[in-house]
Simulated scan of single mutants.
Amino acid sequence: MKWLAKFTTLSFLLSVTFTASAAPNDFSQAKRLLRDHVYNDQNQTAGGDFYCGCKWEWVGKSGGRMDPNSCGFQATKQASRATRLEWEHVAAISAVAQQRQCWRDGGRENCQRTDPVFNRMEGDMFNLVPSIGTANALRSNINYGMVSGPSMPLGACTTKIGTTVRAVEPRNEVKGEAARITFYMADRYNIRLSDQQQRVLVAWDRSYPVSAWEKERDRRIAYSMGHHNPFVTGERQWVPGYKPLAEGIASGSAQPQTQKASESPLKSSQLSSAGAVRGNSKSNVYHLTQGCPSYEQISQRNRVEFETEAAAVKAGYRKAGNCA
């Protein structure tokens, strides 16, 4: 049955290539892409969620229902979120955003409303992992580190959330992944890491090499983001004194990737002129300047500009039903 396995793999690759090749413009888009093209077949695997290894069932467009019993998870605080799948920012978004003026002027909501660069930071798929909601809530924006002394009881979950030491020590299975994701975010968005953080993360990076799933995750996300995590592929290595390249800030205002007409699922006669296609990131519907009455009604916060209809379709959008 080797031919069947090869066919299945090829089919999956093709589906990812043609449906998830434009980087998300915000957190909502990122969650949908992660569900549909990265973690779609991972909800019942041995790896489970990031912090505790719990399995889950998909629910809605980007969420899921966690099964705490599958990993022996128990908690006395935030217990109501134990059955919720939540998308965790490995590098806390507050740390990512502190350099943005929008954050200083009004925090997260202000950034989401006014700063497209922040929206791309918040929706960077490499920094998002599925997490059991309680662990996500208890971690909050605490930095990763080694936890000595008492920690919050989480049942069989081996992630440690310190109660006297303000640090979170993820389970061994994801320590290396956590380090390489943090390095990526620090490098891409010019985030400062303390000397203590760097020492711990460098040690985790060396002690827990890149796993097969981490390589596969990187490959799947790269189809949407348009680049890899170089700390996973081995192109870069974090060392003390490393100077971030800040590529994400330099390119953060770029428009979504477009595709060549020859590759488009639309006929060439259906392609719109440049700048004439506007998407709504909340509904994943696009509108044209001509024949679509809602073109000007999309709020600034939800606007996504495309050069062609082909680019909008490739990013997962569909044409508005009220277009002529």
Rank of each mutant, 00 (worst) to 15 (best):
A5C: 08
T8K: 15
T8Y: 10
S11T: 08
L14E: 05
L14S: 07
L14Q: 10
S15Q: 12
T17A: 12
T17K: 12
N25V: 15
F27Q: 04
R32L: 09
R32Q: 12
R35Q: 01
V38S: 08
N40E: 08
D41A: 14
D41L: 14
D41R: 15
Q44G: 03
G47E: 13
G48H: 08
G53R: 06
G64W: 05
R65W: 05
P68Y: 02
N69C: 06
S70W: 08
Q74P: 03
R81C: 05
R81M: 13
T83R: 10
R84Q: 15
L85F: 03
A91S: 12
A92S: 11
A95K: 14
A95E: 08
R104P: 01
D105P: 12
N110V: 10
R113M: 13
D115L: 12
R120M: 09
M121R: 07
N127K: 07
N127V: 02
N127T: 01
L128Y: 07
V129I: 05
P130V: 07
G133C: 04
N136I: 11
A137C: 00
L138I: 04
L138E: 00
L138Q: 02
R139K: 12
N141T: 15
Y144D: 03
M152N: 03
P153H: 00
A156H: 08
K160M: 13
T163E: 11
T164E: 08
T164N: 11
V165P: 02
V168M: 00
E169R: 09
V174Y: 04
G176P: 02
A178G: 03
A178C: 12
I181T: 01
M185V: 14
D187E: 03
Y189D: 02
N190M: 04
Q196R: 11
Q196W: 05
Q197S: 00
V202K: 08
V202P: 02
A203L: 07
A203Q: 12
W204E: 07
D205I: 13
S211F: 13
E214K: 12
E214C: 05
E214D: 04
R217M: 11
D218H: 09
R219Y: 10
S224I: 04
S224R: 10
H228S: 15
H228Y: 14
P230I: 09
T233V: 02
R236M: 12
W238K: 13
G241Y: 14
G241W: 06
L245Y: 09
G248L: 05
A250F: 10
A250C: 04
Q255A: 14
S262M: 10
P265R: 04
P265V: 15
K267I: 09
A276D: 04
A276L: 06
V277K: 00
G279V: 05
N280Q: 06
N280V: 04
S281A: 15
K282A: 13
L288S: 03
G291Y: 03
C292W: 00
S294G: 06
I298G: 00
Q300A: 15
R303L: 13
E305G: 08
T308H: 00
A310N: 03
A312H: 01
G316P: 06
R318T: 13
K319A: 01
A320W: 00
G321M: 00
N322K: 04
A324S: 15
